[in-house]
Structures are given as structure tokens and as C-alpha cells.
Write a protein that binds this DNA or RNA. Structure first.
Lengths: 188, 188
DNA sequence: GTCTATAAGGAGATAGAC
DNA sequence: GTCTATCTCCTTATAGAC
């Protein structure tokens, strides 16, 4: 017994794709309702405004990100392997998305920090990514040699990956993400 | 004899600020002419379209960036000092701009790679930044010990800085750019 | 809950007077 | 070269029928 995807979900899926691939400001309500094949009245019954749709989009992406990441790393136990797989995860995401970048960086670039709700979601997402890296590096420093202060190194690795994802958005390839992998290989 | 800034220049300055601080898609022609205090007819005598204004904006920023950078590094001769000053330069730029990020990364995030002219300007700017870092590292590897393949290290430093500038846009501070400086201090 | 019709305003761009 | 007036289209959002 297959359950039909709800209208509300279909609206969110359509809007999410458009926001991500062509930008929030470049996406009109009319295009969303046309591609979701619904009437405008239906949209505003489910979502108060275009901004409400944006918040739902970002919240969903936040949940999807860490669920998928944990799933992807699931088997790995060695911290170095975890680091490499974490970068692999980002490579896979970008290759699946035609190198369209990070949802949160893009929204921040479009809207700045003015919308408090959006900014909080972006800040929170990035803080969680950084904390995730810090956890992995904690395992590394207790099991092996201590190269650098763990906190600084976690920060630096985070920034490298951020830069490499942005570079993927600009160049359309994942070469720089692969450079990050090569650097991690040499570092530990 | 002070020369008055031309109307054309004033249009470009106004548009550039608006594009940078509130985004390209968030900036309307009406706002540009209002803030530049000119009539719409005048704008279209000087620029064919809003896109034409965008190209001029990016070209000007490209020139300003490397002119200012060379000026800032002018005195430095030691390659390690050059690296640190290069990051200092980015810190200063972000602090002067209330951490509003990189002109080119932001435009790429808003418009993607669809507009060939914009994408070429962004790609070219980033390639020049990377090449600049490579040059400095070449001096380092001939004068001192060779830690890593120069090309990979230049890449990695570039990505770190890119990530730290994006982080400044998100957090509103330059802490991560300062982490990059700390990392460079330890690296060489 | 989904629909159509429409409001109210802003977008980018052009014509033509001065 | 600068101006005003205007065109056409699209924007987000609401009202009210079914």
C-alpha cells in the first residue's frame, strides 16, 4: 500500500530544489506552484509566506545532512578513515548536485545576516559541522601523536572543506575537495 | 581644481555598494537611481542593462583587489611575512566591510555558473589568487625546508582562506581568518 | 483543502521632450 | 546627457467560490 506524497511535502520538495539550484531570490511563487502543479491558494494554506517555506527548507536540509553523514560514516571506526570519509561524503553530495554548493553558504550569500531566523539556522549548522570534526580529532589525538592543538586543527580542517565546497560551486568540479583528501592523507 | 566625480562613476559606485551589501537580485534599478540621485534615462545612457552594470562592478573589484593587495604587501620581502600579511589584508577588508564576504563568491552563490561572462570573471579572479599564493610558496620552498609539494600546499592555503572569508560572512567576525594566521605561524 | 480571480506594487527597460 | 512618463511583465499575497 503505497502512500501518496502529501501536497505539503510536494510543495516543500519543489521549493527546496528551486531555492537550491536557482537561488531564493530568483525563485518566484508562481514557478513553485507551476512545478509542484498546485494552485496558489493551496500553497498559502500550508505555508504562511515564501519565508516560511525557506525556513522549512533549511530545517529539512539540516536534518538530512547529519542523518546522511552518520549513515555514510557508519562503518568507519578509525578516526583518520572517518576524516577521509567525511570529505568523501561532501564530494559525493557535490557530484550528485552538479557542484551547486552548500545550501547554507548560498542562503547566507544571498540574504546576509539580516534575517535572524535564517542566520541562526546557518550558524547552528556550521557550528555542528565544526563540532563534528572536533570530535573526530579528539579520538585521533588520544590514539596517536599530537601534531597541533586539536581545536585549531579542527577549525582549519573545517575551513579547508568549506573553501573546497565553495570552489566546487565556482569551478564545477570537485578537484579541490580531492586536494583536501590528499592533504589529510599527508597530515596524519 | 577639484574634479567632480562623473555621473557614470557615481552610478557604478552606488550600484557596486548595493550589489555587495544587499545582493544583486535584491537590488532594483529604482533603488540605484534613487541613491545615486539620477534619472532612469541617465542610467540607461551609460549602461545598457543591469547586467552590464554587474560586469563593470566585478571588473572594477578585480582590479581594486590586486592593486590594494600589492600596495599592502609592498614592503614585505620574507615569504612567511608575505603570507601572514596576505591574510591580514583579508582581515582588514572584512573588518572594513562589516564582514560582508567576498564579492566574487557572493555573486557566484547568487547566480551560479549560468552567466558565462560572470563565471569567467569569478574563475579568473580565484585562479589569480591561487597563483599569487603559489608564487609566495615557491620562494619559501627554495629558501627553506620543503614540507609538502608546493602546489598542494598553495591550494590548501587558498581553500583555508576562502573558507575563513565565508565564515566571516556567516559569523560576522574574523576569528577564523585569525586561526588561519595562527596555523601559518605553526606551519613554517 | 483546493481552486480561480485579483489586488497592489515593483521589476527592468524604452520613448521622446528638453 | 539628463529628464519625465510610460510600457509590459512579474512579484508576493489575499478573498472567496466550491
Amino acid at each position: 500500500m503505497e502512500k501518496k506524497i502529501s501536497t505539503k511535502q510536494r510543495i516543500l520538495d519543489t521549493a527546496s530544489n528551486l531555492f537550491y539550484y536557482q537561488g531564493f531570490n530568483n525563485t518566484g511563487i508562481n514557478q513553485i506552484i507551476a512545478e509542484a502543479d498546485i494552485a496558489i491558494g493551496s500553497l498559502y494554506k500550508h505555508y504562511r509566506s515564501k519565508n516560511d517555506l525557506l525556513y522549512s527548507y533549511l530545517q529539512t536540509e539540516e536534518e538530512k545532512f547529519f542523518t546522511s553523514l552518520n549513515e555514510y560514516l557508519g562503518k568507519a571506526s578509525d578516526p583518520k578513515e572517518k576524516l577521509l570519509k567525511l570529505v568523501d561524503f561532501r564530494i559525493r553530495l557535490q557530484e550528485e548536485a552538479q557542484c551547486s554548493g552548500c545550501h547554507f553558504i548560498k542562503i547566507n550569500a544571498e540574504l546576509g545576516r539580516k534575517d535572524e531566523c535564517v542566520n541562526e539556522l546557518v550558524l547552528n549548522h556550521k557550528a555542528k559541522q565544526k563540532a563534528y570534526l572536533h570530535e573526530i580529532l579528539d579520538e585521533l589525538s588520544t590514539s596517536g601523536s599530537q601534531h597541533l592543538e586539536t581545536s585549531l586543527l579542527a577549525n582549519i580542517l573545517f575551513l579547508m572543506i568549506e573553501g573546497a565546497v565553495v570552489s566546487a560551486t565556482i569551478t564545477g568540479n570537485t578537484n579541490d575537495l580531492k586536494s583536501v583528501k590528499a592533504y589529510i592523507q599527508q597530515l596524519f
